[in-house]
Amino acid sequence: MTLEDVRKILDAEFIACGELLHRDVKTACGSDLMSDVLAFVKPEGLLLTGLTNPQVVRTAEMADLGAVCFVRGKKPDKQTIKLAEAKNIPMLTTPLSMFESCGRLYRDGVVSCFECGK
């Protein structure tokens, strides 16, 4: 699946790096705790989160994530969007909840990008 497919499935819109819409998405995770993402996530995954502060972009940058999607219609401020653009990290926003978003993507074949927990 591509980011463009994700956008359609989640009724989402691009808010950064929309030109990377053909990027491949095979794995995803849903989390609002960045250390958890940093600890367990494999590179190239899609992060679904309700947080919109710059640390989300930093986390994506450090962990080499493939993209970030904000849930519940949330959008980060301009500064954070600019940071994502500078770091080449595509960002989307969906009106759906985290639960609904994870559910739909899993249904359509995306698998977890967490390496097993503890």
Partner: peptide
């Protein structure tokens, strides 16, 4: 801090 996405107590282990 938790509301900002940190404070899970994972950092040092990570």
């Amino acid at each position: 801090v938790r509301e900002l996405g940190f404070g899970a107590g994972m950092g040092l282990q990570n």
